[in-house]
Amino acid sequence: MAGLDKNTPLPTEIKLHQASHILEVAFNDGSIFQLPYEFLRVYSPSAEVRGHGHGQETLQVGKQGVTITGIEPVGSYAVQPTFSDGHDSGIYSWDYLYEIGKNQQMLWERYLQRLADAGASRTPL
């Protein structure tokens, strides 16, 4: 795992909002991102989700309503959430959280399009 980019803003606060299923991350550049648990789950940086190379991603389906049941720090560079579906292998570095926070709208639209193209659903079976 590469170290942090020296230009990456660092989080000043991380809050789990269990009622609204939002992970709120505030960074030291003033950015605040509200990341839905489902969004974090479908964009997990784990090999299980992302594969081992471009084009090997596994489309995550049925993740609507997923929750975060726990979250642990990983050194001083990341957090590792445990999701209610048992997924716990994604390590979310500060630069990854910042990147997906900045691009949240575009990434979410891309995910919804991939679901539609696959004839799949966000709704759990």
Rank of each mutant, 00 (worst) to 15 (best):
G75D: 05
Y43P: 01
A116F: 02
V74I: 11
S31L: 01
A26I: 01
Y96Q: 03
P9N: 09
L97Q: 10
W94R: 00
E48T: 15
E38L: 10
L10T: 09
Y77V: 09
I22F: 14
H52L: 10
A47V: 15
L4W: 01
A118M: 03
P45W: 08
Q104C: 04
R122H: 04
N7D: 07
E24M: 09
L97P: 01
L59V: 07
K63P: 01
L4A: 12
H21E: 05
R41H: 07
L4F: 02
G30K: 15
Q104T: 13
A47N: 04
S20E: 08
K102W: 07
V42H: 11
S31A: 11
D85Y: 03
D5N: 15
R50K: 14
D5M: 01
V61H: 02
E38C: 13
L16M: 11
N28L: 03
E24S: 15
G51M: 10
R122A: 06
L40R: 06
F27P: 00
Q80P: 04
T12M: 06
A2M: 07
E109Q: 15
L125G: 03
I14S: 02
G119Q: 04
P11Q: 13
Y43A: 02
T12Q: 10
Q80I: 08
Y111R: 05
W108C: 01
P9R: 10
M1C: 11
H87E: 08
V66S: 08
E48Q: 12
W94Y: 15
Y96C: 01
S89T: 13
G51T: 14
G70L: 03
T123S: 04
Y96H: 05
Q18L: 14
D5Q: 15
S121W: 03
T67Y: 08
G90H: 13
A26N: 09
T12E: 10
T82Y: 09
Q60A: 08
I68V: 11
I14M: 06
A19V: 09
I32K: 14
T67D: 10
G53C: 13
S44R: 12
R122E: 09
Q60D: 02
